[in-house]
Design a protein around this nucleic acid. Structure first.
Lengths: 359, 359
DNA sequence: GCCCGGACTGTAACCGTTTCCATCCGCGTT
DNA sequence: AACGCGGATGGAAACGGTTACAGTCCGGGC
C-alpha cells in the first residue's frame, strides 16, 4: 500500500538499482537521471522502508542506552547529552532503564540486539569483561561509570576519586575536623570510588574517623534523610557531611534544618554531581561538578566511532575531570554564585590524570 | 553468519514454516515437534532477526516519544513513566527531544516513521489537527498537553486550569492580595491554561491586578530569576508569586532571598508540578501536584491500545486531575511534610471534571 | 576497422521472516 | 468404499530494500 522503490522505478522509467543509487548517492549516475529520479521520488512522497533497508544492510542507525535508573536530574542530563549528539549525527536513541542487576542488563541487551548498531551501558554494578563475554563481539559497546579493569571495551568514567578527594580536603582546609560521609551501595563503582577519595583524603591528613560516620546510602532522597537521623544520634556530632551525590545532600540539608541545626554554621553539607538545581538551594550547595550531559555526548561520539570501524577500532578509555564548586553550604566565604576550582578538561588514556585541585 | 531460522529448520529436520509457527506459538503443531524445535533453537542460540520480522509483519514493537525538551526533572519523570510501562508491555522506547517548533516535530516524525508502531507527542506548541494531517492515518498518536480542540486524536492533558485556579484561590484565602504570576511562553498550551486559571480566580474574587504583575517566563531557572528582578522594581510590591512551574518558583525563591526578602513572610511563592525535589527546599514548596510519571504511563497504555486496534479504536480524551499540595512557602501553617488537597483521581471524557478544591 | 575501457544502467540474487496454500494422513460418516 | 474433515507439515511467495554482476553504449587509440 505504501509507495516503494519499485513504484519510483516504474514511474521514472529507470530500474530499482538506479533509483537506489540516486537515493543513496553512490555509483555513477547521469545528472539528468538523478534529477528525474529525485523528482519522481518526492512527487510520490517516497520514503524508504526502514526495516527492509536494515534487513539488507544490517544497520539500524539507532543506538541503545541502558540506564540503571531514571529518577532525578542526573539521568535526564545524561540522556540529554546522548540525545543531542545522536540526533546531530543522524542516529536515533532507544532507551531502557531500571537495570540494576547484571541479569536484567543481559535480558535488556538481548531484546535490543537486532535493533541497535551499538549500546551505551551505564551501570555501576557490572564489569565490562563479563558483559562483553555474552555479547556478539561485533556489537560496539561503551561503558559508562562501570567497575574498572576492562582493557578490551570502550569505557568512560568520571573522576570520582579525585573529586571526592578534593572535596574532603576542601572541608579539612576549612577547619572541619569531623567529616561524615553518606555513600552509595557497596559494589557500586561510583560510590566506591567516591568513598575511597574521602578516605584517602582523611588518611593523608592523618585523621581517623569512627566507622559510624560513614554511612551507606543509595543516592536517593530517603537515604539523605536516614543518614541525618543516624548521625544525630552519635556523639560527638560531625561538623561536616559529605554526601556522595547532590540529591542526598539536599535531602540531608532539609532534614538537618528540621532538626534545628544550621547549615553550614553547625554542620557543613556538600554533594557531588552539581545537578542544575543545586545552586538554587539555600544555602547554595557546594559540590563537585561533573559535566553530565558532556559525558553522555562523549559516550555517543565514542560509540559512533566504534560503529564506523565495525568495532575493529582502538579502544578508548577516558576519565572526565571533575571540578570543585565552592558555594555556601560548606561554610566558605564566597562571593556571588560560588567559585569553581578545577581543571575542567577531559583527560584521556589509561590513568586518571584528573588534576582536580584542592581548595 | 548469524544463525537463522533456516539453520534451526535444517538441524531440527522440519521446515522453516513449522519452526516459525513454534516460535510464535501459532497454528497447530505436535507437542513432540514443538519440543524438538525449541530444543534446537536454544541450543543454536537462535534469535530471530528483528528487521526481517518487522519487514514481514510491519510491526516494530517500538514506541516513539517526542519531547519538547529534556531539561529538568519534569521530563525525566515523564520518560520514566513511559519507559516502565512500555517495558512491561514488551515495547521499546525511541526518544527524541528538543522539538519546540512544529517544523522540527514534522521532521523528527518523518525520520521515525518506519521505526515505531506509534508515537507519544508532548508539545504544548502544536495542535492535533495540523499534525494528524501530514501523518499516515494508520499511525497511532497520543498527544500530551497539546493545544486543545482535537476530537480525532487521542489526547491526554493535565488539569492546568483547575490547578492554577485552586492555587490562586488558596493564596487569596490566606489573605494575599497582590498575587503576581510568572507564566510560560504565549501559545504554550500548559502555560496558557495555567494563566487562565490564575486570572479566573482573581476575577472571581473581584480583584483587578496591574499588568506588570503578570510576567511571561519560559519554565527555566533563568526566567524565575528575571521575574523577581522585574517584580522588585514595581510598587507596591506583590505579596505572593505564583510561578507556572516549580523550577521557576525555586529559582525565584533563591533570587528573593538574595534580595533580602523572606519567603513566605514578605512574599509567598508557589509552583506547579510538584517535582520530587520540591519538598526538600527551604521553605518547602507549596505547589500543584501532577502525577508526571503517571501521565507518561497512561499515554503508553493508550498508545498500545491504539496499536492493537490498528488505530481504528474509539478515541480517548482524558484530563489528569491535579492536587494542591500545601507546604510552607505559601505561608500557611502546616504540620510536618505539608498537606495534600485534591481528588487525585483520573477523570475521563470530554470535559474537565477535575475537582481540585480550594484550600 | 577493431579493441578497450569507462560511464551508465538493468537484472536478479540476496537479507530472514511470516504466511498463504497445498499436501498428506488418519479417522469417523454415510 | 468413497468422502469429508481437521490436524500437521512443507513449499514458496511475499515484504522492500541493496548490490554483485552483467550488459550496453560510446569515444578514443592502435
Amino acid at each position: 500500500m505504501a509507495v516503494t522503490i519499485r513504484d519510483v522505478a516504474r514511474v521514472s522509467g529507470f530500474s530499482v538499482a538506479t533509483v537506489s543509487r540516486v537515493l543513496n548517492g553512490i555509483g555513477p549516475v547521469k545528472d539528468e537521471t538523478r534529477r528525474r529520479v529525485r523528482e519522481v521520488a518526492t512527487s510520490l512522497r517516497f520514503s524508504p522502508n526502514v526495516a527492509a533497508r536494515s534487513l539488507s544492510t544490517s544497520r539500524t542507525h539507532t543506538l541503545g542506552v541502558l540506564l540503571p535508573d531514571l529518577h532525578g536530574e542526573f539521568f535526564s542530563e545524561v540522556i540529554r547529552g546522548i540525545d543531542e549528539t545522536a540526533q546531530a549525527q543522524g542516529y536515533h536513541v532507544l532507551v531502557s532503564s531500571s537495570h540494576n542487576a547484571p541479569a536484567e542488563i543481559s535480558a535488556a541487551l538481548a531484546t535490543m540486539l537486532g535493533r541497535v548498531d551499538g549500546v551505551v551501558i551505564m551501570s555501576p554494578v557490572i564489569d565490562g569483561r563479563t558483559l562483553a563475554a555474552e555479547l556478539p563481539p561485533s556489537l560496539p559497546i561503551v561503558l559508562l561509570n562501570c567497575a574498572g579493569g576492562q582493557q578490551d571495551v570502550d569505557a568512560l568514567d568520571i573522576d570520582n576519586h579525585g573529586g571526592a578527594f578534593a572535596m574532603t580536603r576542601h572541608l579539612l582546609a576549612l577547619g572541619r575536623q569531623r567529616i561524615a560521609f553518606v555513600g552509595g551501595p557497596r559494589g557500586n563503582a561510583d560510590a566506591d570510588a567516591r568513598r575511597r577519595g574521602y578516605r584517602d583524603a582523611l588518611r593523608e591528613a592523618g585523621i581517623a574517623q569512627p566507622d559510624s560516620w560513614e554511612i551507606d546510602g543509595d543516592f536517593s532522597e530517603g537515604a539523605g534523610i536516614a543518614a541525618v537521623e543516624q548521625l544525630l544520634a552519635v556523639s560527638p556530632r560531625p561538623d561536616a557531611l559529605f554526601a556522595a551525590n547532590d540529591v542526598m545532600a539536599i535531602a540531608a540539608m532539609s532534614a538537618l534544618r528540621d532538626a534545628g541545626l544550621r547549615v553550614p554554621d553547625d554542620i557543613a553539607v556538600t554533594g557531588f554531581d552539581d545537578i542544575p538545581i543545586a545552586r538554587y538551594f539555600h544555602p547554595t550547595l557546594t559540590t563537585v561538578r561533573v559535566d553530565i550531559a558532556g559525558l553522555g555526548a562523549r559516550a555517543v561520539r565514542t560509540l559512533i566511532h566504534a560503529v564506523g570501524w565495525k568495532n575493529e577500532h582502538a579502544r578508548v578509555q577516558a576519565t572526565l575531570a571533575t571540578e570543585l564548586v565552592v558555594r555556601a553550604s560548606c561554610g566558605a566565604r564566597v562571593a556571588d554564585g560560588g567559585v569553581k576550582v578545577g581543571s575542567g578538561g577531559l583527560t584521556s588514556g589509561r590513568g586518571l590524570e584528573c588534576r582536580t585541585p584542592i581548595a
